[in-house]
Design a binder for these strands. Structure first.
Lengths: 190, 190, 190, 190
DNA sequence: TATGAATGAGCCTTCATTCAT
DNA sequence: AATGAATGAAGGCTCATTCAT
């Protein structure tokens, strides 16, 4: 008998991603995904219960990956502007390097399906963030605000700018990037 | 061809909205929309070329409506923090008052379909914004940054927070709201 | 707009019948039925909720038709051997004339689906039978037995014989037919 | 190829039976059968050519078993009413004791698949019947009728009654059973 | 203009069967 | 001999769209 190829799940993920970003969410059919992955549609059902299950796991998979990309291994995590800049740039880099994944995550966040996925699957990288935010507030580096608010003030603007510039087929210059970070930092720092 | 019954178009828009927010994007079929609008599916095709065309126009329609909600009639538009606060709160109010529309707009912004819609249809409210931003930069109220960047820094955080709090079934307190505005303002003001 | 062709239901019934008798129950697909009926598969769903619904209604339809064939219009229904012989021969004639329908009914009687169909849809011809049986028992024409038992003793043998002879590609001779009726009559008569 | 593990064939038969009676005919898949039998689906194909082949052999298997149940070992087979009553009751007992098997046989008898199976595979128990029938006619115990007709007159009514009473969730009382046998016997006896 | 009937293409999913070990 | 992974074809059903009135 053949051995179950564990990498096949990743091939499916990548194919799904590709199809979603090409044909949009409604144009993403199991057959298309299978074709792109070089599989039979039936094979997908060996690894996932059904389409919903697959999409949910796809979301969790890439959400986790994105979260992890914020923190490089062995990275300094002391509460300082430098630390935040590094994380912030890592986030930016992730969006730029993985536009398809990021687009999918954004796209999926507004989908009814996701609601209980989001709640049931707290990502692993959250604790690191929570700790950093709390310590930074304790040392008066950051303003005493709710963590979600800090997160939004820091990351939402650059995310939106990347999306905007992609839709206009332009790229952010280094200057603009620095501008955005400095402005975002002013928003949250004390 | 769309001359006679301009109201019918609006009935279709409202119905589409309702169906999308009830059954999600994939559950939104032309027949359902027609039923909710009290029409025959065939009738929709008298007013729109096809489903894509209808969705695109729906998007433009509500995008414009959202933009206009920023500026109330007869509103003072001098370059001041107060003016920005008013606009900012209008935006917040719109999101809170029209969660369906806003959700639809967000949902649809990431769709491949919309890409060239966005480029081809500069909304009408832009000139007002452009003028205000330029004047504000001239009077050194705002930092000398690209308008899109200013826009992102001002509005993206609160938008994201509303989405977040909705998904958690909470609401933003007045305090939090003020916090977010003040922080966003710090980001863009000089 | 087109007018709904009420006869279309009958076309579907006939087509379903044909397919079932050709390819068996498991080989009977909606697409095949639609093709034979000269319709699109989608059209069937305008007239029936789903496949189960269609099959159920098919069963009820032909069950009723078979029941009615027992009793010709204006037929004498006095409790006499002659009356029973007429009904019996009508039944035989029905089986021979409509082998497909009868086969379908037999086939379907053993299907799990049918259980609550049978109970919910008491056929219209039953009262006539009940009355005749009761009167016949009262005049001591028939033995005092449960009606279902009388029914089985009278009709089951000939039904089985027709099936048997069809599977052997032979036909019952008039002599054999009389033999079977007389024997069945002996079984139930007093 | 089927030499080594004759028992495995029986496991497959029993599993197929169980699945058919649990999930109906359409719900009976090879994988389910394999699972219930504790085998891999591929293994079934070592013992049978394909699904049709398996079903056919299943039919033949249980048909033979049913036929043999009529005649207990060492049983008296002289042409007498008592002999027939015993056989008749054996038949009844079989139906009641093995409702799944009987249901399967009935269900399958009307299937196009079975047509040539029936013709090609004369069951082994027939000779015993043939002999008994012929001798009984010779001694004027039975009427001079075709054996198939005798068979139908004797067994069809009780079979149908069992089916009927099962679908109504009732059971035949001893009295009713005797009634049916006596009536059936009147039909065939001289 | 407006409609409801009609449809072919396509969707998700399952299944009998084969592959490769 | 035996298996579990893999699959192409097909199943029931829906949908955007067109037809015919």
């Amino acid at each position: 008998m053949r051995i179950k190829d564990e990498d096949k799940v990743n091939r499916i993920y990548r194919a799904a991603m590709k199809v979603i970003n090409l044909d949009g969410f409604q144009g993403c059919s199991m057959t298309k995904i299978a074709t792109v992955a070089g599989l039979s549609p039936a094979t997908i059902y060996l690894y996932f219960e059904n389409k919903d299950d697959m999409i949910k796991k796809l979301f969790i998979h890439f959400k986790a990956k994105m979260g992890l990309s914020y923190f490089k291994v062995g990275m300094e995590l002391s509460p300082s502007k430098g630390t935040f800049r590094t994380i912030w740039l890592n986030h930016y880099q992730y969006i730029v390097d993985n536009p398809e994944e990021y687009n999918f995550l954004e796209n999926f966040s507004n989908c009814p399906l996701i609601d209980h996925v989001e709640k049931e699957n707290k990502p692993d990288y959250c604790p690191a963030f929570e700790t950093l935010f709390e310590e930074s507030k304790a040392t008066r580096l950051l303003q005493p605000m709710n963590n979600d608010i800090i997160y939004s003030l820091l990351f939402a603007p650059v995310s939106q700018m990347v999306k905007k510039s992609k839709s206009l087929n332009t790229t952010l210059s280094t200057n603009e990037l620095i501008q955005i970070f400095e402005a975002s930092w002013k928003a949250v720092s004390q």
